[in-house]
């Protein structure tokens, strides 16, 4: 199976001098196509930082990050958006939907970002696939947390990205909605052959992972099976 993400000896230091915080310290790991990887660790251990670096939102202090074969650790801000656009779908704990847009428009804007290469009808298909075919014209304020996260999943899939990065996607949800969301996410790996990384500290959802990586104080505590 192909590696979608390859991380080697990654470190990230926030700030400088006496206030410097070493959020990641020598992390190496691979994420393969078709697998769901659970990133587990206590609060402040560096999970969000790792996800941000993998997704090209944050530049690492040192080390190498390859996304779909592209080295992104030294790409600048004018080139990174394209990498994210083509490869990554983000899912956030707080959903981050656009409150002024309807469900359908929230997905359409992600399609629009990619120019005209994706047919418009795709937004509706994606929403139907997450079970929200009857909420196309609802506004986020009128959706439940679980429904919002499903809209966010549909939106993340707009560009058909090979990689899905989710940061505590069930933290704000009750366990039933959480399970629906986790089912959807793990199916993206199993059935659609994407690489899915899910940050969590929710023990109830760990069994959805094909692999669990523990992280404490910016270090991996279980060695990944390097390819």
């Amino acid at each position: 199976m192909q590696n979608r993400i390859e991380i080697r000896n990654l470190s990230k230091v926030y700030g400088e001098g006496s206030t410097a915080v070493k959020a990641l310290d020598g992390v190496s790991l691979d994420v393969r196509q078709g697998e769901t990887m659970m990133l587990l660790g206590p609060s402040g251990s560096g999970k969000t930082t790792l996800l941000s670096v993998m997704g090209g939102i944050l530049r690492p202090t040192s080390g190498s990050v390859k996304v779909n074969g592209i080295e992104i650790s030294n790409l600048n801000e004018t080139r990174l958006p394209k990498v994210r656009l083509d490869n990554i779908g983000f899912i956030f704990q707080g959903f981050n939907l656009f409150p002024a847009l309807t469900t359908l428009e929230n997905v359409e804007i992600a399609i629009e970002l990619r120019g005209r290469s994706i047919p418009k009808g795709r937004a509706r298909q994606l929403l139907e696939a997450v079970g929200l075919g009857d909420k196309l014209h609802a506004y986020p304020a009128n959706l439940s947390g679980g429904q919002k996260q499903r809209v966010a999943i549909a939106r993340a899939l707009a560009g058909n990205p090979p990689i899905i990065l989710a940061d505590e996607p069930t933290a704000a949800l009750d366990s039933t909605s959480g399970q629906i969301v986790m089912d959807l996410l793990s199916n993206l790996a199993r059935q659609e052959q994407r690489a899915v990384v899910i940050v969590t500290h929710d023990a109830r959802v760990l069994h959805y992972g094909d692999r669990i990586v523990h992280i404490t104080d910016g270090r991996m505590t279980d060695l990944p099976e390097a390819a």
Binding site: I57, R84, D86, F90, N96, L113
Partner: peptide, 14 residues
């Protein structure tokens, strides 16, 4: 600001 951040995470350029 969070929406703009989200847009950028989604792949929008500046």
């Amino acid at each position: 600001i969070r929406e703009f951040g989200t847009l950028k995470a989604m792949g929008a350029g500046n």
